[in-house]
């Protein structure tokens, strides 16, 4: 006998009456059914500062920073590898800190300085980290590369700023640069081509030049 599957319907029906707990909130177990505020997506005006340039956009509120960069500003250097914070290809710098741009809404980043790979350097005017990636062949297919480079730049800054990592031997001592520190801190950027060994060499060279 065939088994009928209708989970989607069940789920929706239950969600209306059952409610779930949020990641950041406390909605009680039983909630009132209420019409959604709008069938149509809410559009909103957003002002983003990217690579020193200000952009005014009208976007669907649901737009992530990554999709705003890629689909609206056509800054496609930031890559979508997983869209769930599991790969690091979308890494950009926000106010100097590296962030997964797929897990933040564009609208949450108004007033912040966003730097993408395009803002670090261009083919004609490469950032030292970009140069080092070429020299040490710190990439293969190139898809994770912008994220690796944004992360790489930020990681050297984090080490300089004394931010500890999982492999920092003593939390009460200053943080020092090492291969192990680089590897641990870069672990949020997956490279399936497996250029890791070369990326460490590229970063070490840049760190050495920075002194």
């Amino acid at each position: 006998m065939p088994i009928l599957h209708d989970l989607e319907l069940n789920r929706r029906d239950l969600m209306v009456g059952g409610g779930t707990l949020a990641a950041l909130t406390a909605v009680p177990a039983v909630v009132q059914a209420q019409p959604s505020p709008a069938g149509a997506p809410a559009l909103t005006k957003v002002s983003l500062t990217v690579n020193g340039q200000s952009h005014d956009l009208e976007i669907d509120i649901r737009t992530t920073l990554l999709d705003a960069l890629r689909e609206r500003l056509h800054l496609t250097g930031s890559k979508k590898g997983c869209d769930h914070g599991q790969c690091g290809a979308c890494t950009v710098l926000i106010d100097g800190r590296r962030v997964n741009s797929c897990l933040t809404l564009a609208i949450m980043n108004e007033g912040m300085e966003i730097t993408t790979i395009e803002g670090l350097g261009t083919p004609e005017n490469l950032h030292p980290m970009q140069e080092a990636f070429i020299k040490h062949d710190g990439y293969q297919c190139g898809y994770c590369t912008p994220g690796q480079i944004c992360s790489g730049v930020a990681v050297l800054g984090e080490i300089k700023a004394g931010i500890p990592s999982h492999v920092t031997p003593d939390l009460t001592q200053p943080v020092t640069l090492s291969d192990a520190e680089i590897r641990e801190r870069m672990s949020g950027n997956i490279c399936r081509c497996g250029a890791y060994s070369n990326i460490v060499e590229a970063m070490t060279e840049v760190a050495g030049r920075q002194g």
Binding site: L75, S78, I117, E118, L126, Q130, Y139
Partner: peptide
């Protein structure tokens, strides 16, 4: 193709 890949221009 390195300069294009490291700058996100590919």
């Amino acid at each position: 193709d390195g300069p294009l890949k490291v700058t996100g221009a590919a």
